[in-house]
Simulated scan of single mutants.
Amino acid sequence: MDERLRRPRVCFYTSDYGYGHAARDIALIRGLQETLHAEVIVRTGSPAEFMARSLPGVRVLRVWNDPGVLMDGTVVDKERTLTAVERWLSTWDDCIAGEKAFLHDRGIDLVLSDIAPQPFLAAEELGIPSLGVSNFTWHLIYTHLYGQNELTSRIAEAYRAADGAFLLPLHEPMEVFSDQREVGLVVRPVTRSRAELPGLSSKRPLVYLGGGQSLDPAVFRGIKTALRECTLLVPSWTEIPGTIRIPPGETETQDWIAACDLVVSKPGYSTISEAIRAGVPLALFRRDGFAEDDYLIGGVEHLGIGKEVSTEAVLDGSWTEDLESLMDLRKNFDEIDDIFKRDGTKDCTDIIREMV
């Protein structure tokens, strides 16, 4: 076959940590399929089933990419996280060798990673171009927790092997990447209105209360207090009397975020970006020890579209005392920077088109 006519083959590595990386990667993979007719293979861990349901026809293969962090409530458990990271690094060389064989055998043309570091080294050794896609790196997270050491130096070295990175809005400096490309929000577009979603009433304020799968369900202790003031929407894996649950098996969760009047959540990047795209204000509570939160909470407050709330206020439900003022932040969305209004998926696919 003429090489100019062959569909580009892309291997996409999605972080195993939560579903937020998967949500934005799904948006980009759909864009690659629509605009470049790319043949995409996904390598990921815990989000594999969700990504397979969201991407019919795409091969989603389970692999251990990264350990993330381990939480104790809303606080990073440094000791358990360090044990997990050290175990991860002990498999480093075997992982790179395995991924080299995988990429070579499948004739991959481009490697994308959000934001596992080892694939960049495998791609570099094979001469395959590679790009990062993220708003943060594990180098930032682990340096914040443990300082500069052999562990973080090894991770930085892997990131430097990439040809560049797409920097999503609200990103940290990400200086470990040599070629940095600023892009707009990479989010799945809304496909249904609030009226089209089952079980949602338009009579009371609808608030999404999200803790993420990495957090303990204790974040929902103050649910009874909050229920007096609004209707609460909770993630599909959380079943609490009196709330509305996103249906298990739902793939287009961005539709449910867009239907809300307010999002109360830990600073999960995809939740934040989907809320911004839909014009839904945010109330964010911090994860102690997670360096990414400074950039996300600070950025949202700077834009005037959200505020930080204390963990205690989330736990006891007292955040509802400010419900009206928080929802009123919706008026500030018209003034946000253009980068948040741009189609980041198109930004990325335009650059990738030039590479492949």
Rank of each mutant, 00 (worst) to 15 (best):
Y159D: 09
I276K: 02
F177T: 10
R9Y: 01
L103V: 08
G279V: 09
E79H: 10
P119T: 04
A283T: 09
S54R: 02
T91P: 00
E3H: 14
V300Q: 06
T81I: 11
Y208E: 07
F12S: 10
S193T: 15
P235I: 03
A291G: 07
H302N: 15
C230N: 06
T271H: 00
G317I: 10
V75L: 04
L167M: 15
T251I: 15
L89A: 12
V10I: 14
T35A: 15
G344N: 04
A38L: 04
E39C: 12
A283K: 10
D334H: 13
W138G: 07
I115V: 15
W92I: 10
A116W: 01
F102M: 08
L262M: 03
L206Q: 01
T14L: 04
R4Y: 11
F136E: 05
F333T: 00
F50E: 03
S318Y: 00
R342L: 00
I297C: 02
H171I: 09
F285T: 08
R43L: 13
D328Y: 06
G306A: 06
G249E: 03
T91Y: 14
E324M: 05
D2T: 12
K78Y: 06
S130C: 12
Y19L: 15
G57L: 08
F166Q: 04
T349R: 10
G279P: 10
P56Q: 09
R6D: 05
L61T: 14
V133Y: 00
A195F: 05
Q254L: 05
L185A: 11
K266H: 08
Y19A: 13
